[in-house]
Design a protein around this nucleic acid. Structure first.
Length: 104
DNA sequence: AGGTTGACCGTCA
DNA sequence: GTGACGGCCAACC
């Protein structure tokens, strides 16, 4: 799998996350690990930083259910807009966490 | 070629 | 709950 194909695989998966649900960067990396041969949360993070605008980037959060300060406000607005379960200003990962195969 | 830098994560204190 | 550390892998000096 070429790096380019990996990027597509990440975007494709993110695009399948249902509204109101989220996956962590690490969960995305894990989900693609078998198919891609790699599993790096950091890599998924940088891919989202570059290509996230093309998909529902607010549905991919860090393991704490938060987002970096730069985009936190926008992310929170989107979570509220689609009814994502929140805990203070973070996503409630226990309630909102999604795994591929769940909504199919 | 080599060092630094990220929209990260799990572990340990 | 917080903070430090090591591992991670591609992009960028």
């Amino acid at each position: 799998m070429t790096p380019d194909e990996y990027v597509e695989a990440v975007l494709e998966l993110v695009d399948r996350i249902p509204p109101g649900r989220v996956m962590s960067y690490g969960a995305v990396a894990d989900a693609l690990a078998e198919r891609s041969g790699r599993a790096s949360a950091r890599l998924v993070g940088s891919i989202m930083a570059r290509h996230g605008a093309a998909v529902g980037w607010h549905r991919v959060v860090n393991a704490s259910g938060a987002m970096p300060a730069r985009i936190a406000a926008e992310a929170r607005a989107r979570w509220l807009a689609e009814g994502t379960p929140l805990r203070q200003d973070r996503v409630d990962m226990r309630a909102a966490g999604w795994r591929p195969g769940e909504g199919v």
